[in-house]
Simulated scan of single mutants.
Amino acid sequence: MYGQRITSSLPGRKKLLLLLLIIFVPALVIIVLSGMNERNEDTLKARNNTLLVIQSLAAQQEQVAIATKQMLSTLALLPEVQRLDANACSEIFRELQNLNPSYYVIHAETPDGNVFVASAPFPPDSVNLSDRKHIKDAIRTLDFSAGEYIVSRVVTVPSINYAYPVLDSNRNLVAILTAGFKLDEYARFISNANLTEAYSIVITDHKGVRLYRWPDNEAIGPGITLSSDSFERISGDSDHGIFEKIGRDGINRVYAFRQLRLNENSSPYLYIIASVAKDKILQKATLKMFRNLSFLGVAALLAVFLAWCFG
Rank of each mutant, 00 (worst) to 15 (best):
T110F: 07
S145E: 07
D112R: 04
E109Y: 02
H206T: 11
I242G: 11
D216P: 11
V157M: 12
N192M: 09
T225V: 04
P158A: 07
D239V: 05
I201N: 01
E232I: 01
V209Q: 08
D168Y: 05
T110N: 09
S145L: 04
H240L: 11
D143P: 03
G113R: 02
P158M: 07
L177V: 04
P222Q: 00
I150G: 04
T178R: 01
E244A: 14
P158Q: 04
F231S: 08
F243L: 10
V117S: 00
I242K: 11
S119M: 03
I160N: 09
D131M: 11
P121C: 02
I242R: 09
L177N: 03
A138G: 10
N161Y: 00
H107I: 02
V151M: 06
P165V: 00
D237R: 14
N161V: 11
R140G: 14
E197K: 15
N170E: 14
N170Y: 08
K182L: 14
Y212D: 06
L226R: 02
S228R: 07
A175W: 01
N170V: 01
Y199F: 12
V155L: 11
A187E: 12
V151E: 04
T225R: 08
T225N: 03
S227W: 08
E148H: 06
I234F: 06
F189Q: 10
V155C: 05
F144D: 05
D229N: 15
S119K: 00
S119V: 01
T141L: 06
D131V: 10
Y104G: 13
K207Y: 14
I190Y: 07
Y149F: 09
D216A: 12
K136G: 06
H240I: 06
E197W: 15
V155H: 08
P124E: 05
K136E: 11
I234D: 03
S152T: 12
I160F: 00
G221H: 03
D131S: 14
L211T: 05
V202N: 08
L167P: 00
R213A: 09
A193W: 04
D216G: 07
D143R: 03
R171Q: 13
S200W: 02
V105R: 00
E197D: 15
A146E: 13
D143S: 08
L177E: 02
I150S: 05
K133H: 07
P158D: 07
E109T: 05
R213P: 13
G180F: 00
D125Q: 13
P121R: 04
G147M: 04
A193R: 05
G241N: 04
T156R: 14
I160L: 12
F243P: 13
D205G: 03
F122Y: 05
P158V: 01
N128W: 13
N194H: 12
L183K: 05
T196A: 14
V209D: 06
V151H: 08
S235L: 01
A175K: 02
N172S: 10
Y164E: 11
N194E: 12
D239S: 08
E218Q: 07
N217W: 07
R140D: 14
L226D: 09
I224V: 06
I190H: 06
N114I: 07
S227K: 10
S235Q: 06
I176F: 02
L167H: 00
H134Y: 15
L129Y: 10
H240K: 11
D143L: 02
I242P: 00
P215N: 13
L211C: 09
A175I: 02
V127Q: 11
A146N: 07
T156P: 13
N170T: 12
L173E: 01
V115Q: 01
T196G: 15
F116Y: 12
